[in-house]
C-alpha cells in the first residue's frame, strides 16, 4: 500500500512517499504511524484514501493509496 505525505509531515516522516503492508483498517494504520513516527501526534492531518477524504474508520486493502494531508497555514 502506497502512502503519500504532504506539507510539513514530509519533515516529520522524513520522506514524501513510502510503501507498507496494508493494515486491516484506517484506525490501525494511524496507530501504526503514530508509534513509528513519534512526533506525528503533534500535528493535525487528515487521512485520504484513494483521493477521497475519509471520516471515521474504513477498511483498507493493499492496493489502496493513502495520503496524509495537513492544513497549510502559509499565505
Amino acid at each position: 500500500m502506497k502512502i503519500i505525505v504532504f506539507g510539513v509531515l514530509t519533515d516529520v516522516i522524513g520522506k514524501s512517499a513510502f510503501e507498507i503492508k496494508a493494515p486491516k483498517d484506517s484506525e490501525t494504520l494511524l496507530q501504526n504511524l503514530y508509534s513509528e513516527f513519534f512526533f506525528l501526534k503533534n500535528y493535525k492531518f487528515q487521512l485520504v484514501v484513494n483521493k477521497e477524504k475519509v471520516d471515521g474508520n474504513v477498511v483498507l486493502n493493499d492496493n489502496d493509496e493513502i495520503a496524509l494531508l495537513p492544513p497549510y497555514s502559509g499565505g
Binding site: 500535528y43 493535525k44 487528515q46 477524504k53 492544513p71 497555514s73 502559509g74
Partner: peptide, 20 residues
Amino acid sequence: CVFPEKGEDEIIINCSITGV
C-alpha cells in the same frame, strides 16, 4: 469539512519559520 477544528496547541507553521 476538510479540516474540522483548529487545535489549541497547533504548532504554528508559517513562511517565517519554514521558508517558501
